[in-house]
Protein backbone atom coordinates (compact mmCIF):
# COMPACT_ATOMS: atom_id res chain seq x y z
CA UNK A 1 0.00 0.00 0.00
CA UNK A 2 2.87 2.35 0.77
CA UNK A 3 3.94 2.35 -2.88
CA UNK A 4 0.51 3.67 -3.79
CA UNK A 5 0.63 6.59 -1.38
CA UNK A 6 2.46 8.97 -3.75
CA UNK A 7 -0.32 8.38 -6.27
CA UNK A 8 -3.10 9.23 -3.88
CA UNK A 9 -3.08 13.01 -4.31
CA UNK A 10 -2.91 13.09 -8.13
CA UNK A 11 -5.34 10.17 -8.35
CA UNK A 12 -7.89 11.99 -6.20
CA UNK A 13 -7.47 15.08 -8.34
CA UNK A 14 -7.94 12.97 -11.49
CA UNK A 15 -11.16 11.53 -10.04
CA UNK A 16 -12.51 14.99 -9.25
CA UNK A 17 -11.45 16.24 -12.66
CA UNK A 18 -13.32 13.51 -14.51
CA UNK A 19 -16.10 13.27 -11.96
CA UNK A 20 -18.94 13.70 -14.41
CA UNK A 21 -17.53 11.22 -16.95
CA UNK A 22 -16.93 8.67 -14.21
CA UNK A 23 -20.44 9.18 -12.84
CA UNK A 24 -21.98 8.81 -16.30
CA UNK A 25 -19.89 5.73 -17.08
CA UNK A 26 -20.74 4.17 -13.73
CA UNK A 27 -24.45 4.85 -14.14
CA UNK A 28 -24.46 3.40 -17.65
CA UNK A 29 -22.66 0.26 -16.46
CA UNK A 30 -25.05 -0.09 -13.54
CA UNK A 31 -28.08 0.45 -15.79
CA UNK A 32 -26.73 -2.11 -18.25
CA UNK A 33 -26.14 -4.70 -15.54
CA UNK A 34 -29.56 -4.12 -13.98
CA UNK A 35 -31.26 -4.35 -17.38
CA UNK A 36 -29.50 -7.60 -18.25
CA UNK A 37 -30.32 -9.10 -14.85
CA UNK A 38 -33.93 -7.98 -15.22
CA UNK A 39 -34.24 -9.55 -18.66
CA UNK A 40 -32.59 -12.74 -17.37
CA UNK A 41 -35.09 -13.06 -14.53
CA UNK A 42 -37.95 -12.38 -16.93
CA UNK A 43 -36.61 -15.02 -19.32
CA UNK A 44 -36.24 -17.59 -16.51
CA UNK A 45 -39.78 -16.90 -15.47
CA UNK A 46 -41.10 -17.38 -19.01
CA UNK A 47 -39.17 -20.61 -19.46
CA UNK A 48 -40.48 -22.02 -16.18
CA UNK A 49 -44.04 -21.02 -17.04
CA UNK A 50 -43.78 -22.49 -20.53
CA UNK A 51 -42.28 -25.74 -19.35
CA UNK A 52 -44.92 -26.09 -16.66
CA UNK A 53 -47.58 -25.70 -19.34
CA UNK A 54 -48.93 -28.36 -21.63
CA UNK A 55 -47.09 -27.30 -24.78
CA UNK A 56 -43.74 -28.28 -26.24
CA UNK A 57 -41.82 -26.35 -28.86
CA UNK A 58 -41.04 -29.41 -30.94
CA UNK A 59 -44.17 -31.28 -30.05
CA UNK A 60 -47.16 -31.61 -32.26
CA UNK A 61 -50.06 -30.20 -30.42
CA UNK A 62 -53.34 -28.55 -30.97
CA UNK A 63 -54.06 -25.03 -32.09
CA UNK A 64 -54.21 -23.90 -28.48
CA UNK A 65 -50.44 -24.35 -28.27
CA UNK A 66 -49.53 -22.58 -31.50
CA UNK A 67 -50.04 -19.09 -30.15
CA UNK A 68 -48.25 -19.90 -26.92
CA UNK A 69 -45.27 -21.27 -28.83
CA UNK A 70 -45.11 -18.23 -31.09
CA UNK A 71 -45.25 -15.90 -28.08
CA UNK A 72 -42.61 -17.88 -26.22
CA UNK A 73 -40.25 -18.05 -29.17
CA UNK A 74 -40.72 -14.33 -29.80
CA UNK A 75 -39.80 -13.50 -26.22
CA UNK A 76 -36.77 -15.78 -26.32
CA UNK A 77 -35.70 -14.15 -29.57
CA UNK A 78 -35.97 -10.73 -27.98
CA UNK A 79 -33.97 -11.93 -25.00
CA UNK A 80 -31.21 -13.34 -27.16
CA UNK A 81 -31.06 -10.03 -29.07
CA UNK A 82 -30.68 -8.17 -25.79
CA UNK A 83 -27.81 -10.47 -24.84
CA UNK A 84 -26.23 -10.06 -28.22
CA UNK A 85 -26.30 -6.26 -28.07
CA UNK A 86 -25.03 -6.31 -24.48
CA UNK A 87 -22.21 -8.58 -25.66
CA UNK A 88 -21.40 -6.25 -28.56
CA UNK A 89 -21.23 -3.22 -26.27
CA UNK A 90 -18.93 -5.03 -23.87
CA UNK A 91 -16.79 -6.25 -26.77
CA UNK A 92 -16.48 -2.70 -28.09
CA UNK A 93 -15.80 -1.23 -24.66
CA UNK A 94 -11.98 -1.26 -25.05
CA UNK A 95 -12.34 0.93 -28.14
CA UNK A 96 -14.43 3.44 -26.20
CA UNK A 97 -12.02 3.27 -23.26
CA UNK A 98 -9.09 3.87 -25.55
CA UNK A 99 -10.74 6.93 -27.07
CA UNK A 100 -11.63 8.31 -23.63
CA UNK A 101 -8.12 7.90 -22.23
CA UNK A 102 -6.47 9.32 -25.36
CA UNK A 103 -8.77 12.32 -25.71
CA UNK A 104 -10.36 13.71 -22.56
CA UNK A 105 -7.84 12.22 -20.13
CA UNK A 106 -4.47 12.85 -21.80
CA UNK A 107 -4.60 14.89 -25.00
CA UNK A 108 -6.96 17.53 -23.63
CA UNK A 109 -4.49 18.32 -20.86
CA UNK A 110 -1.69 18.66 -23.38
CA UNK A 111 -3.85 20.65 -25.78
CA UNK A 112 -5.21 23.10 -23.24
CA UNK A 113 -1.93 23.38 -21.36
CA UNK A 114 -3.33 22.29 -18.00
CA UNK A 115 -0.54 19.72 -17.76
CA UNK A 116 1.74 22.64 -17.00
CA UNK A 117 -0.30 23.38 -13.92
CA UNK A 118 -0.21 19.74 -12.83
CA UNK A 119 3.49 19.16 -13.44
CA UNK A 120 4.61 22.28 -11.64
CA UNK A 121 2.93 21.15 -8.45
CA UNK A 122 4.93 18.59 -6.48
CA UNK A 123 4.06 15.84 -8.94
CA UNK A 124 6.41 14.43 -11.55
CA UNK A 125 5.01 13.86 -15.04
CA UNK A 126 5.49 10.10 -14.60
CA UNK A 127 3.46 10.07 -11.39
CA UNK A 128 0.85 12.28 -12.99
CA UNK A 129 0.48 9.80 -15.88
CA UNK A 130 0.50 6.80 -13.54
CA UNK A 131 -2.27 8.33 -11.42
CA UNK A 132 -4.32 9.32 -14.44
CA UNK A 133 -4.16 5.75 -15.74
CA UNK A 134 -4.58 4.05 -12.38
CA UNK A 135 -8.02 5.57 -11.85
CA UNK A 136 -9.66 4.24 -15.03
CA UNK A 137 -7.73 0.96 -14.73
CA UNK A 138 -9.07 0.14 -11.28
CA UNK A 139 -12.62 1.20 -12.09
CA UNK A 140 -12.73 -0.50 -15.47
CA UNK A 141 -11.21 -3.79 -14.37
CA UNK A 142 -13.79 -3.97 -11.60
CA UNK A 143 -16.64 -2.89 -13.87
CA UNK A 144 -15.72 -5.20 -16.73
CA UNK A 145 -15.38 -8.16 -14.35
CA UNK A 146 -18.86 -7.57 -12.99
CA UNK A 147 -20.43 -6.99 -16.40
CA UNK A 148 -18.75 -10.05 -17.89
CA UNK A 149 -19.94 -12.22 -14.99
CA UNK A 150 -23.48 -10.85 -15.24
CA UNK A 151 -23.54 -11.51 -18.96
CA UNK A 152 -22.19 -15.05 -18.58
CA UNK A 153 -24.84 -15.80 -15.97
CA UNK A 154 -27.57 -14.25 -18.11
CA UNK A 155 -26.61 -16.48 -21.04
CA UNK A 156 -27.51 -19.51 -18.94
CA UNK A 157 -31.06 -18.18 -18.55
CA UNK A 158 -32.09 -18.74 -22.11
CA UNK A 159 -34.06 -21.52 -23.74
CA UNK A 160 -32.16 -24.31 -25.44
CA UNK A 161 -33.05 -23.10 -28.94
CA UNK A 162 -31.29 -19.81 -28.40
CA UNK A 163 -28.05 -20.76 -26.73
CA UNK A 164 -24.87 -19.17 -28.04
CA UNK A 165 -21.58 -20.97 -28.53
CA UNK A 166 -18.47 -20.26 -26.50
CA UNK A 167 -16.56 -19.35 -29.63
CA UNK A 168 -19.05 -16.73 -30.88
CA UNK A 169 -17.23 -13.39 -31.00
CA UNK A 170 -19.71 -11.80 -28.60
CA UNK A 171 -19.15 -14.61 -26.09
CA UNK A 172 -15.44 -15.27 -26.47
CA UNK A 173 -14.67 -11.54 -26.55
CA UNK A 174 -16.62 -10.86 -23.37
CA UNK A 175 -15.13 -13.73 -21.39
CA UNK A 176 -12.57 -13.05 -18.68
CA UNK A 177 -9.58 -12.80 -19.07
CA UNK A 178 -9.67 -11.72 -22.73
CA UNK A 179 -12.10 -8.88 -22.09
CA UNK A 180 -9.94 -7.60 -19.22
CA UNK A 181 -6.84 -7.82 -21.40
CA UNK A 182 -8.41 -5.76 -24.17
CA UNK A 183 -9.62 -3.18 -21.67
CA UNK A 184 -6.07 -2.76 -20.39
CA UNK A 185 -4.83 -2.59 -23.98
CA UNK A 186 -7.37 0.18 -24.62
CA UNK A 187 -6.03 2.17 -21.68
CA UNK A 188 -2.40 1.67 -22.75
CA UNK A 189 -3.00 2.51 -26.42
CA UNK A 190 -5.07 5.50 -25.34
CA UNK A 191 -2.28 6.86 -23.15
CA UNK A 192 0.37 6.45 -25.84
CA UNK A 193 -1.86 8.01 -28.49
CA UNK A 194 -2.81 10.91 -26.23
CA UNK A 195 0.85 11.68 -25.59
CA UNK A 196 1.80 11.45 -29.26
CA UNK A 197 -1.23 13.23 -30.71
CA UNK A 198 -1.73 16.41 -28.74
CA UNK A 199 -5.15 17.26 -30.07
CA UNK A 200 -8.20 15.86 -28.33
CA UNK A 201 -10.37 15.00 -31.32
CA UNK A 202 -7.54 13.57 -33.40
CA UNK A 203 -6.33 11.50 -30.43
CA UNK A 204 -9.82 10.06 -29.92
CA UNK A 205 -9.99 8.99 -33.56
CA UNK A 206 -6.46 7.57 -33.75
CA UNK A 207 -6.81 5.63 -30.49
CA UNK A 208 -10.19 4.16 -31.43
CA UNK A 209 -8.95 3.08 -34.86
CA UNK A 210 -5.73 1.62 -33.46
CA UNK A 211 -7.39 -0.37 -30.70
CA UNK A 212 -10.16 -1.47 -33.03
CA UNK A 213 -7.65 -2.63 -35.62
CA UNK A 214 -5.70 -4.66 -33.08
CA UNK A 215 -8.94 -6.26 -31.85
CA UNK A 216 -10.17 -7.13 -35.33
CA UNK A 217 -6.77 -8.45 -36.37
CA UNK A 218 -6.37 -10.68 -33.34
CA UNK A 219 -10.01 -11.75 -33.67
CA UNK A 220 -9.32 -12.84 -37.23
CA UNK A 221 -6.43 -15.05 -36.19
CA UNK A 222 -8.10 -16.22 -33.01
CA UNK A 223 -8.49 -19.84 -34.14
CA UNK A 224 -4.76 -20.06 -34.96
CA UNK A 225 -3.67 -19.20 -31.45
CA UNK A 226 -3.85 -22.79 -30.27
CA UNK A 227 -3.23 -26.00 -32.29
CA UNK A 228 -6.40 -27.23 -33.94
CA UNK A 229 -7.58 -30.74 -33.39
CA UNK A 230 -8.13 -32.66 -36.63
CA UNK A 231 -10.78 -35.33 -36.95
CA UNK A 232 -10.98 -37.51 -40.05
CA UNK A 233 -13.43 -40.15 -41.07
CA UNK A 234 -14.28 -42.18 -44.11
CA UNK A 235 -17.65 -41.55 -45.67
CA UNK A 236 -19.23 -44.42 -43.88
CA UNK A 237 -17.34 -43.82 -40.63
CA UNK A 238 -18.23 -41.58 -37.69
CA UNK A 239 -16.63 -38.16 -37.13
CA UNK A 240 -15.42 -37.71 -33.61
CA UNK A 241 -16.29 -34.01 -33.23
CA UNK A 242 -18.24 -33.01 -30.10
CA UNK A 243 -21.26 -30.87 -30.82
CA UNK A 244 -19.99 -27.87 -28.88
CA UNK A 245 -16.77 -27.71 -30.87
CA UNK A 246 -15.64 -24.69 -32.85
CA UNK A 247 -15.40 -26.09 -36.36
CA UNK A 248 -12.79 -24.05 -38.17
CA UNK A 249 -12.41 -25.95 -41.45
CA UNK A 250 -14.02 -28.89 -43.19
CA UNK A 251 -12.60 -30.56 -46.27
CA UNK A 252 -12.06 -33.80 -48.06
CA UNK A 253 -9.19 -36.25 -47.63
CA UNK A 254 -7.73 -38.65 -50.13
CA UNK A 255 -6.60 -42.17 -49.45
CA UNK A 256 -3.04 -40.83 -49.37
CA UNK A 257 -4.01 -38.40 -46.64
CA UNK A 258 -3.99 -35.33 -48.88
CA UNK A 259 -6.41 -32.57 -47.94
CA UNK A 260 -8.69 -31.04 -50.56
CA UNK A 261 -11.25 -28.27 -50.23
CA UNK A 262 -14.85 -29.19 -49.70
CA UNK A 263 -16.01 -27.80 -53.03
CA UNK A 264 -14.06 -30.43 -54.95
CA UNK A 265 -16.70 -32.77 -56.41
CA UNK A 266 -19.64 -30.72 -55.24
CA UNK A 267 -22.85 -32.68 -55.05
CA UNK A 268 -24.31 -32.73 -58.51
CA UNK A 269 -27.64 -33.77 -59.85
CA UNK A 270 -26.07 -36.88 -61.15
CA UNK A 271 -25.04 -38.97 -58.21
CA UNK A 272 -23.02 -41.22 -60.43
CA UNK A 273 -20.96 -38.30 -61.66
CA UNK A 274 -20.09 -37.25 -58.13
CA UNK A 275 -19.16 -40.78 -57.13
CA UNK A 276 -16.93 -41.02 -60.17
CA UNK A 277 -15.31 -37.69 -59.36
CA UNK A 278 -14.61 -38.79 -55.81
CA UNK A 279 -13.22 -42.10 -57.01
CA UNK A 280 -11.05 -40.42 -59.64
CA UNK A 281 -9.38 -38.30 -57.02
CA UNK A 282 -9.14 -41.09 -54.53
CA UNK A 283 -11.23 -39.09 -52.02
CA UNK A 284 -12.10 -41.37 -49.20
CA UNK A 285 -13.51 -39.16 -46.48
CA UNK A 286 -13.75 -35.86 -44.62
CA UNK A 287 -11.60 -33.95 -42.19
CA UNK A 288 -12.82 -31.48 -39.61
CA UNK A 289 -10.33 -29.07 -38.03
CA UNK A 290 -11.85 -27.88 -34.79
CA UNK A 291 -11.34 -26.57 -31.29
CA UNK A 292 -13.15 -28.69 -28.74
CA UNK A 293 -14.72 -26.76 -25.86
CA UNK A 294 -11.72 -27.63 -23.70
CA UNK A 295 -9.66 -25.28 -25.87
CA UNK A 296 -11.55 -22.28 -24.51
CA UNK A 297 -9.04 -21.60 -21.74
CA UNK A 298 -5.81 -22.13 -23.73
CA UNK A 299 -7.23 -19.90 -26.47
CA UNK A 300 -8.27 -17.28 -23.92
CA UNK A 301 -4.92 -17.33 -22.15
CA UNK A 302 -2.81 -17.14 -25.31
CA UNK A 303 -4.84 -14.24 -26.68
CA UNK A 304 -4.78 -12.47 -23.33
CA UNK A 305 -1.02 -12.97 -23.17
CA UNK A 306 -0.52 -11.36 -26.57
CA UNK A 307 -2.86 -8.50 -25.70
CA UNK A 308 -1.14 -7.86 -22.38
CA UNK A 309 2.28 -7.92 -24.05
CA UNK A 310 1.05 -5.29 -26.53
CA UNK A 311 -0.43 -3.26 -23.68
CA UNK A 312 2.85 -3.40 -21.77
CA UNK A 313 4.71 -2.29 -24.89
CA UNK A 314 2.36 0.66 -25.46
CA UNK A 315 2.59 1.67 -21.81
CA UNK A 316 6.39 1.48 -21.78
CA UNK A 317 6.51 3.62 -24.92
CA UNK A 318 4.09 6.09 -23.36
CA UNK A 319 6.27 6.60 -20.29
CA UNK A 320 9.35 6.80 -22.49
CA UNK A 321 7.77 9.46 -24.70
CA UNK A 322 6.82 11.41 -21.59
CA UNK A 323 10.32 11.18 -20.16
CA UNK A 324 12.08 12.10 -23.37
CA UNK A 325 9.95 15.12 -24.09
CA UNK A 326 9.43 16.51 -20.67
CA UNK A 327 12.12 15.17 -18.37
Amino acid sequence: MSTLTPLRGPARVAVRQHRSSLRTGGLLALAGAVAVIGFALWSSHLIDAFEAGPCEVSGTSGRACDQRIVDFQGSMHLYSSVLMYAGLVLTALPVIVSAFVAGPVIARELESGTYRMAWTQSVTPARWLAAKLAVPTVLLVAGVTVLSAVLAWARTRTSSDFTVDWFDAQVFGTTIPVVTGYTLLGIAVGSLTGLLVHRTVAAIAVAAVTTGTVMVTLGTFRSDLWPLRAATATFDGRLDVPLDSWVVEIGRVTGGGERLPMDVCRPQDDEGAQARCLADRDITGLFVDHHPASHLWPLQLVETGIVLALAALALTLAFRVLRRRHG
Binding site: R16, R19, S112, G113, M117
Partner: peptide
Protein backbone atom coordinates in the same frame (compact mmCIF):
# COMPACT_ATOMS: atom_id res chain seq x y z
CA UNK B 1 2.43 30.29 -17.19
CA UNK B 2 1.19 33.03 -19.40
CA UNK B 3 -2.23 31.54 -20.22
CA UNK B 4 -2.88 30.49 -16.58
CA UNK B 5 -3.95 26.91 -17.34
CA UNK B 6 -6.34 25.59 -14.69
CA UNK B 7 -8.85 22.77 -14.87
CA UNK B 8 -11.95 24.48 -16.29
CA UNK B 9 -14.43 22.04 -14.78
CA UNK B 10 -13.19 22.47 -11.20
CA UNK B 11 -14.49 25.17 -8.91
CA UNK B 12 -12.26 27.66 -7.12
CA UNK B 13 -12.54 25.58 -3.95
CA UNK B 14 -11.77 22.37 -5.86
CA UNK B 15 -8.72 23.98 -7.45
CA UNK B 16 -7.31 25.01 -4.07
CA UNK B 17 -8.12 21.55 -2.74
CA UNK B 18 -6.19 20.11 -5.69
CA UNK B 19 -3.29 22.36 -4.75
CA UNK B 20 -3.25 20.79 -1.31
CA UNK B 21 -3.51 17.26 -2.72
CA UNK B 22 -0.70 17.84 -5.17
CA UNK B 23 1.59 19.60 -2.70
Amino acid sequence: SQDKPLYPQLTVTDTLWAGRELN
